[in-house]
């Protein structure tokens, strides 16, 4: 753990033969490629989303017509799918910030104990995280196959043939069927973060508490949980951000169907823009999602900045 003063190195300008030798010029050169690409292909599109949401555009014709709030009025008042997509996004997010983190937390607690083969077990739970979300969607879609898929076959084997639901075709359960695949993929992510957080829980404190006769639950409640407060916030926020982005897994499993009942904001923005070719309405949907995301990002980043400062930037 090295604590260094925050002063940066300032090179004396020793030569004026070449502007490149000045420290600042060198700095700009080093910064430029990343900054230019980031600005051009991440920040500019973000601004463009806002601009587009006030225009009518088919994505290709040179003419973009300014239409004021017409796109917003359409999606809020007249679009039969928008509220469904928003509702699904809210349900999905609420589930995503609770279930995978809790599962991950329990796994982390368990896999932090002295158990044989715990590294292999960790690897198993973490493995789905590295699988492409679109592949997860394809896998789960096949497992949900109403005739030959894993779940239907298993239910048939134990004699529950008549209870096989149409996992992805029944609008009441399709969203949750997709979510099951999401949990499978994401629980390992929370687990790893909690495991890292548990490294920061002081051993001696736990031991001392136990010596004093604290029960397992008391140790968890009064020693471990308080020490994991920062980690928990991080996990919840990251889970929230990830869940707002859910796109691939829905695209791959149902494309928003049946009858748009698994539609979500990110996918609906894409559908409006890229498939119906109404970039204005698509952008308006995107803006709603973007504002929801930014409303989480900014307070979180401020909180982290404060937190880091309080911890004296120790790594």
């Amino acid at each position: 753990m090295v604590v260094v003063p925050s002063d940066t190195i300032v090179l004396p300008r020793r030569s004026w033969r070449d502007g490149l030798t000045s420290a600042q010029a060198q700095g700009w050169i080093l910064l430029a490629p990343a900054l230019a690409i980031y600005a051009g292909f991440a920040l500019y599109p973000m601004i463009e989303v806002f601009v587009l949401s006030f225009q009518k555009w088919n994505g290709l014709s040179p003419a973009r017509e300014f239409v004021g709030f017409a796109n917003y009025i359409f999606i809020f008042r007249d679009d039969p799918v928008f509220w469904m997509a928003l509702g699904n996004t809210v349900i999905w997010t609420a589930l995503a910030i609770v279930i995978p983190p809790i599962l991950g937390f329990l796994l982390a607690l368990a896999l932090n104990q002295a158990l044989p083969g715990r590294n292999a077990l960790r690897a198993v739970f973490y493995l789905p995280v590295v699988i492409a979300p679109i592949a997860v969607a394809t896998m789960w879609k096949w497992m949900y196959d109403p005739f030959f898929g894993l779940f239907s076959t298993l239910l048939t084997d134990i004699g529950f043939q008549s209870f096989i639901p149409d996992w992805l075709g029944n609008r009441r359960i399709a969203l949750y069927s997709i979510f099951a695949g999401y949990v499978w993929q994401h629980a390992g992510f929370s687990m790893v973060l909690f495991l890292a957080g548990l490294q920061g829980v002081s051993d001696s404190l736990v031991e001392a508490a136990r010596m004093d006769g604290a029960s397992r639950f008391q140790v968890l409640r009064y020693v471990i949980l308080p020490a994991l407060r920062t980690t928990t916030t991080v996990v919840v926020v990251l889970s929230l951000i990830q869940s707002l982005r859910a796109f691939d897994i829905v695209y791959g499993m149902t494309l928003g169907g049946p009858a748009q009942s698994t539609q979500m904001l990110a996918l609906w923005a894409f559908t409006q823009s890229m498939q119906i070719h109404d970039f204005g309405r698509g952008a308006a949907v995107a803006v709603v999602l973007l504002l929801m995301t930014i409303a989480v990002i900014i307070p979180y980043l401020l909180w982290r900045a404060r937190n880091d400062k309080a911890q004296g930037r120790s790594a």
Partner: peptide
């Protein structure tokens, strides 16, 4: 395209009993 998308949604909604067929044309 936009009407097609809605036509599909309504057809599927009727097929999955989400929407009463009597209300589909009005929708």
């Amino acid at each position: 395209l936009d009407v097609t998308t809605e036509y599909w949604r309504i057809i599927n909604a009727v097929a999955t009993d989400t929407m009463e067929s009597g209300k589909a044309a009005a929708a």
